[in-house]
Write a protein that binds this DNA or RNA. Structure first.
Length: 305
DNA sequence: GATTCGTGGGT
DNA sequence: TACCCAAGAAT
């Protein structure tokens, strides 16, 4: 694409974002880097509409990394609620501890140091650098991949997994100026989330519909490799979810038989072992289980009282 | 590089 | 109803 085309793309999408950006709390200029980091981890594979209420609870309860570092694993897993992938809650706590230990309690600005934190990968490190510190970085999430696949490459869907070419394309499209770069990154993501959606894209509302290769080309159907659907019913993931939900909802340790009643015993055992290995479940005595680091004072008080 | 890892709303 | 898919990371 010619440079003039890239400049026009920048103007169109940045202008669209200035009008249509959602007023998410972590986008407020007063939001701390910690608040931004928290939002990015919560948003991993989770729709923002479900993230926002949880984010407000967390930032109110644990306003700094030091505050979260002092929480118990059981507390953070309960507070995580039903956001999904609860290992993220544990990693967030571990990241907070690392931030206190290695960075004096302040979220680091360097992407390499960010990536060294538990639960922070390429995407999240780039996102925190851009959205918390205003640095120029290359943010490539599922939205960016889809928007650029359509607008530039002319295909409906990006490849099944992130390719080198996609990263290079994204890098080539990020504006040179730091401030424009940070806004560009979030603007493309927002366009993908609100207009250039995976299914039923709203092309009529798109600011770049006239320069989108996929749209101009008649929106040809996807003809790449078959995309694997996510299994759910009967999987270990489902049983793990049931077990953790049971423990989240229980103030007291739970017997093995009550963790996921009605499920195959061998599967429950396998999932339980995995959850213990992951640090999401902790054995209590011989045959009972609880969330990790669960404070037993309540149970003791019940007995004592 | 392919798999695994939750949950719920939209189509 | 069944399926798709969401600001990915770790292994």
């Amino acid at each position: 694409m010619a440079d003039s085309g890239v400049a026009a793309l920048h103007r169109s999408i940045l202008e669209w974002y200035s009008v249509h950006a959602r007023p998410l709390p972590w986008r407020d200029p007063s939001c701390s880097p910690w608040g931004v980091l928290l939002s990015e981890v919560m948003a991993q594979q989770t729709p923002l509409a479900r993230v926002e209420p949880a984010w407000r609870e967390w930032i109110d309860r644990w306003p700094t990394p030091a505050d979260l570092a002092a929480a118990s694993p059981a507390d953070v897993v309960r507070a995580w609620g039903r956001l999904g992938y609860p290992r993220r809650a544990l990693r967030l706590r571990e990241a907070a501890i690392a931030i206190v230990d290695r960075h004096g309690g302040d979220v680091p600005r360097d992407q390499g140091e960010l990536k060294a934190l538990p639960g922070i990968g390429d995407y999240t490190a780039a996102a925190v650098a851009a959205f918390a510190f205003g640095d120029r970085s290359v943010v490539v999430d599922t939205n960016v991949r889809r928007v650029e696949a359509r607008v530039v490459t002319g295909v409906e869907h990006a490849a099944p997994s992130l390719t080198r070419a996609e990263v290079e394309l994204a890098a080539a499209l990020v504006p040179e100026d730091d401030k424009d770069a940070a806004t560009w990154n979030v603007a493309v993501m927002e366009l993908g989330a609100l207009v250039c959606t995976a299914r039923a894209p709203r092309c009529a509302e798109c600011p770049v519909r006239e320069r989108c290769a996929w749209n101009v080309g008649g929106r040809p159907a996807y003809d790449g490799p078959p995309r694997r659907g996510q299994k759910w019913h009967g999987t270990d993931r489902q049983v793990r979810g049931i077990i953790v939900q049971t423990l989240r909802d229980s103030l007291d340790p739970v017997a093995r038989a009550d963790l996921a009643s009605g499920r195959d015993a061998a599967q429950v055992d396998r999932c339980l072992a995995g959850l213990i290995e992951d640090g999401l479940v902790e054995p209590v005595g011989a045959e009972r289980f609880s969330l990790p680091g669960h404070d037993q004072d309540d149970a003791v008080e019940e007995v004592a009282g």
